[in-house]
Design a protein around this nucleic acid. Structure first.
Length: 560
RNA sequence: GUGCCUGUAGCUCAGUUGGAUAGAGCAACAGCCUUCUAAGCUGUGGGUCACUGGUUCGAUUCCAGUCAGGCACGCCA
């Protein structure tokens, strides 16, 4: 629809002597008296053509040649807005079109032939997923769904590290709890993993092996056991939310020697060295970010800052593998690289981007979606989350409380950059009049109507001839059809901006218009043609809701 | 102290890239079920878009500063 208007506007621009290759904004006016679509081109041209915007609008409008079956009329209003009014037949036909396209309605081909990767969750296997992680997980998953609907060949990736100090501490935590289970007296250090899940893992080892591992000083068997258990539980939790990655990338692989005899980490250091961005001092290897403008301010003085890539003990700091990891994303041929992570990693990405740029990678392919933290409160009291301390609110507990649909919905209904306050008590209380139910209820209602209609009128709704759309006439019917027609635009808008909550805003509008339509227009008991036309509209609405729910990953219940 | 994010109705938040009279849900009040699901619909009240300047035809939106809150600032990941 937008395309149709834009094409015609561009043609008119040429005729009035303006540059047609500009971006033309079409938006839906917030007041219906200003039409169904509106453009401000005339105003943006005022300076260039040195003319009054209204006069420019006048000239443009006189050049338009719209099919009256599609655009009924074009008006000029206000400072020079051009307002378009859709004709009834356009709205009617759009209903038929939605039904013909079915699940494909709303999909776009802008990403066809392109590869995209969305990296999300990426928690190391040291403990159960927290509520905070859940937000990034759901956000990433919805972004992936949206990009998939845009036609991208999509990879959902999970980046993890099961080596290093954190895993040694985890393994030793399990070992100590195991010894405790065997009856030994232990002292459990404060900086070890305190959570009960450690005891559960120890218990499991004990029930499988008895006290056979009691004298074991090598941590590897504890580590392997703990890692397997925790990873399995993370995947289980994600699956409850419908999140499934199709690629798990182990950070360790970046340390392994490749055919060249070097690891990817080493290669990155070499390449940065060739470009003159490496310095060796104090036994460590530094990335000279100071040359790229990285600095900090102390006592009012600016101090250039370099970044350690390899520590003096020979181990890479986490930044090096992170850079190396990103080079694999390019090597694997991704055209669009989306990274989803929490605000705590905010300082990390600029270094990675600096390195990639030095190495000649096109960083404009990378989009970063940073979600702000979730603060969890219970009865108004804030709970600090830390996996190490073991007092984290687990994502599992949250799903137990409010269900998978509401969990997904809550995480994604707010813009990612807002601080989300998740009151567990409130979430539980709200579960009966949760915003997610408003959407799902609309879907269930439609299913109910169709059931009743099929039974009472002895018909098959799916088999109704699309010709009956021509009967649609009431204001509520046409308003609803108009909104349904916007679905493809809503999907691309949400996908391009990586903002799934825009999908929710749109779907809420659809649900609202449907409920209004339901209130005013009866279906069963009307004349046959009216009933059939309204059933078609209901079916189209159901299709849009389903397609929309799919991008959000929430279910479409037939009964509630 | 520095960087990033946030500040919109009593509460939780939207706000289509700078547009026309700033919206929704919850909460409050008043209505609507012998008829397809009342988890719904209709109406009322509720606002200095944190504050001050700037940019322009036009600012909740962009810029600067101020105030308030969150997060991050290691040879931890």
């Amino acid at each position: 629809m937008k395309d149709l208007l834009i094409t015609e506007i561009k043609k008119a621009l040429v005729e009035v002597g303006a540059e047609p290759s500009r971006e033309i904004l079409i938006e839906k006016p917030n007041d219906e008296k200003f039409g169904d679509a509106s453009s401000n081109v005339a105003m943006t041209l005022a300076k260039e053509l040195k003319k009054n915007p209204r006069q420019i609008a006048q000239e443009l409008v006189s050049k338009f040649k719209f099919n009256p079956e599609q655009i009924e009329r074009v008006d000029i209003a206000g400072a020079g807005f051009i307002n378009f009014y859709f004709s009834k037949s356009l709205l009617q036909q759009s209903v038929a079109q939605i039904l013909a396209q079915g699940e494909q309605f709303g999909k776009s081909s802008v990403g066809v032939g392109k590869k995209a990767i969305v990296e999300y969750v990426s928690a190391n296997p040291t403990g159960p997923l927290t509520v905070g992680r859940g937000r990034g997980g759901v956000l990433g998953d919805c972004i992936a769904n949206l990009l998939e609907a845009q036609g991208y060949n999509l990879t959902r990736e999970y980046y993890f590290n099961n080596a290093g100090r954190q895993m040694r501490i985890l393994a030793d935590s399990v070992r100590l709890r195991y010894l405790e289970r065997c009856g030994d007296a232990i002292t459990f250090p404060d900086d070890y993993y305190q959570g009960d899940y450690i005891k559960d893992i120890a218990e499991k080892i004990f029930s499988e092996k008895g006290d056979a591992l009691k004298g074991e000083t090598d941590l590897s068997s504890f580590k392997e056991f703990a890692e397997a258990e925790i990873f399995a539980s993370i995947k289980r939790t994600l699956l409850r939310l419908g999140i499934q990655h199709d690629s798990f990338f182990n950070e360790n692989s970046l340390y392994e020697k490749m055919e060249s005899g070097k690891s990817r980490n080493e290669q990155v250091v070499d390449m940065l060295d060739q470009k003159g961005f490496i310095e060796r001092k104090d036994g460590a290897i530094w990335f000279k970010t100071s040359l790229l403008g990285k600095k900090k301010v102390e006592d009012g003085k600016e101090i250039p800052v370099d970044t350690v890539l390899v520590k003096s003990n020979g181990e890479p700091s986490y930044r090096l593998p992170d850079i190396a990891y990103h080079t694999t994303k390019y090597a694997r041929g991704f055209d669009l690289i989306v990274n989803v992570f929490g605000a705590d990693h905010i300082d990390e990405y600029p270094d990675v981007a600096r390195a990639l740029e030095v190495l000649g990678y096109d960083t404009s392919r990378i989009k970063v979606a940073i979600n702000q933290f979730v603060t969890t409160t219970i009865n108004g009291e804030q709970v600090k989350m830390s996996t190490r301390k073991g007092n984290a609110d687990t994502l599992d507990a949250l799903i137990d409380e409010v269900g998978a649909d509401a969990t997904r919905f809550f995480f994604v209904m707010r813009a990612k950059e807002t601080h989300l306050n998740f009151d567990l008590e409130l979430a539980k209380k709200q579960s009966s009049d949760n915003p997610v139910f408003y959407l799902q209820y609309a879907h269930a209602r439609i299913c109910g109507i169709i059931r009743v209609a099929e039974e009472k009128a002895m018909l098959n709704a799916e088999a109704i001839s699309p010709d009956f759309v021509k009967v649609l006439n009431a204001k509520e019917e046409l308003d609803l059809a108009k909104e349904l027609m916007r679905f493809p635009d809503a999907v691309s808008y949400a996908a391009n901006s990586l903002e799934p909550q825009k999908m929710i805003t749109y779907l809420n509008g659809v649900a609202e218009l449907f409920h209004k339509f339901y209130q005013e227009c009866r279906i069963v008991g009307e004349t046959e043609s009216v009933m059939k036309s309204r059933l078609l509209l209901a079916l189209a609405t159901r299709q849009v809701l389903r397609n929309g729910f799919k991008t959000l990953g929430i279910s479409a219940p037939e009964r509630m």
